[in-house]
Computed example of a mutant assay.
Amino acid sequence: MCEALMVPLLTIASWEWDGDEAWVPQEDQAKAAGSYSAGQNPSQPTGVEVGSTDNMQIYVCPASPEHPHTDLIQ
């Protein structure tokens, strides 16, 4: 077993900002305020959705790369 703590390698988010648009990146504010076609939501530019709009984090062991990765979806 790995004596070191698992550390985050990657986070995959379904949305760049939440539905109430409390925070919108400066470059996307005009798009967020306007109308857009289905499938072109500016808060989800990649179209990647994890689970039912969750986030996925992948963790690795820094001490031993051969140890299995682990993930967390929340």
Rank of each mutant, 00 (worst) to 15 (best):
V24C: 04
T11F: 01
K31C: 01
N41I: 00
E21M: 13
P8A: 13
E16Q: 10
S35W: 14
A33Q: 13
P42I: 03
E21P: 05
P25I: 05
E27T: 00
T11N: 03
Q26P: 01
E21A: 15
S14T: 14
A33S: 14
Q40D: 10
P8N: 08
W23C: 00
A13L: 12
Y36T: 06
K31W: 02
S35Q: 11
Q26K: 10
A32M: 06
L9K: 12
I12W: 06
P42F: 00
G34F: 12
A32Y: 02
G34T: 08
G34P: 06
W15C: 14
S14L: 06
E16G: 00
T11W: 01
Q29R: 10
V24W: 03
E16P: 06
G39R: 02
V24H: 06
A22F: 07
G34L: 06
A13W: 01
Q26S: 12
L10A: 13
W23V: 00
S43R: 05
A30E: 12
E16S: 02
A22K: 15
E27L: 10
E27S: 04
Q29E: 12
P25E: 14
D18C: 09
P42H: 05
G39W: 02
L9T: 07
A33G: 08
L10R: 15
A22W: 09
L10D: 00
Q26I: 07
A13I: 08
G19H: 03
S35H: 12
V24P: 02
S43F: 05
A30N: 04
P25T: 02
P42G: 07
Y36P: 01
L9Q: 15
Q40S: 13
L10Y: 09
A32I: 07
W23K: 02
A32Q: 01
A32D: 04
K31R: 08
D28P: 01
A32G: 01
I12M: 10
P25S: 12
G34C: 10
D28F: 00
D28E: 15
E27A: 10
E16Y: 11
A38D: 15
W23T: 03
A22H: 11
A30G: 04
T11S: 05
G39M: 04
A22L: 13
A22E: 08
S35L: 11
L10I: 15
T11L: 00
G19T: 04
P25Y: 13
E16M: 13
Q40G: 06
L10V: 15
L9C: 14
W23S: 00
A22I: 07
A32N: 07
K31V: 01
Q29N: 05
Y36A: 03
